[in-house]
Each structure stands twice: as C-alpha cells, then as structure tokens.
Lab assay of single mutants.
Amino acid sequence: MATADDFKLIRDIHSTGGRRQVFGSREQKPFEDLVDLGWLKRSSVDSRATHYQITERGTSAAL
C-alpha cells in the first residue's frame, strides 16, 4: 500500500524528468518500494549506482 512519502517521492521524480540515479543500498529502499508498487522500474544497475525510470503507472500516481 502506498504511503504519503511514496506519493511525495514519485511527484519529485516526475517533476525532475522521470529518472533518478541512486548510490548506496540504504538510499535505494524508498525507490525499491516504488518498484514494488509498479511506479518505477530499474533501468540499469552498475557497481556504484542504480538507475530508476518512472513508469506510466508512476506518472498517473504523480498527477
């Protein structure tokens, strides 16, 4: 179930172009929650960072 923080984060991601790069596993937790909701997808993972991209469902949630 989505929380107020989830909606705040997806709106922030949407307003800044729909993509986010995250460093460190602790910082990934809120983004992984949005992946579980179907609002974000992991577009790539490298040794230092994970890249996320907003989905259509995420765009709808952000509006």
Rank of each mutant, 00 (worst) to 15 (best):
K29C: 06
A62E: 02
S47R: 09
D6N: 12
E32G: 05
A49N: 08
E32L: 08
G24A: 08
R57Q: 14
G18I: 02
H14F: 13
Q28E: 06
E32H: 05
R57Y: 10
K8C: 12
I13A: 00
D5I: 06
D33R: 15
R19S: 14
H14S: 06
G58T: 00
A2Q: 04
G24M: 06
T50E: 04
F23L: 14
V35Q: 02
G18D: 03
V45L: 07
G38H: 04
V22Y: 03
A62H: 02
E27F: 09
P30Q: 09
D33E: 08
I10E: 01
L63G: 05
G38Q: 04
E56L: 09
H14K: 05
K8F: 09
D6M: 12
T3P: 03
L9M: 05
T16Y: 05
H51I: 15
G18C: 04
L63S: 06
W39V: 00
L37V: 03
S44K: 13
R20T: 09
E56T: 09
K29W: 05
K8M: 10
S25D: 14
A61M: 08
S15C: 15
Y52A: 01
F7M: 07
R26A: 15
R57D: 12
G18W: 02
Y52T: 01
S25N: 11
E32I: 06
L37I: 06
T55Q: 02
I13P: 00
G58E: 01
T50A: 11
Y52N: 01
T3N: 08
D5R: 09
S44P: 07
A49W: 14
T16N: 11
L34E: 00
H51A: 10
T3F: 05
R11E: 06
D46Q: 07
A4Q: 11
A2M: 05
V35R: 03
S43D: 13
L34V: 02
D5N: 10
I10H: 00
R42S: 06
R19A: 11
L63A: 06
G38L: 04
V45F: 09
D12S: 12
G58K: 00
M1F: 12
K29N: 05
A62S: 04
A49V: 13
E27Y: 10
T50S: 08
L34C: 03
T50P: 05
V22P: 03
R48S: 13
D12T: 07
T55N: 03
G18L: 02
R20M: 08
E56Y: 07
E56W: 08
A49R: 07
H14T: 03
D12E: 14
D6P: 05
L34H: 00
V35E: 03
Q21P: 07
S47N: 11
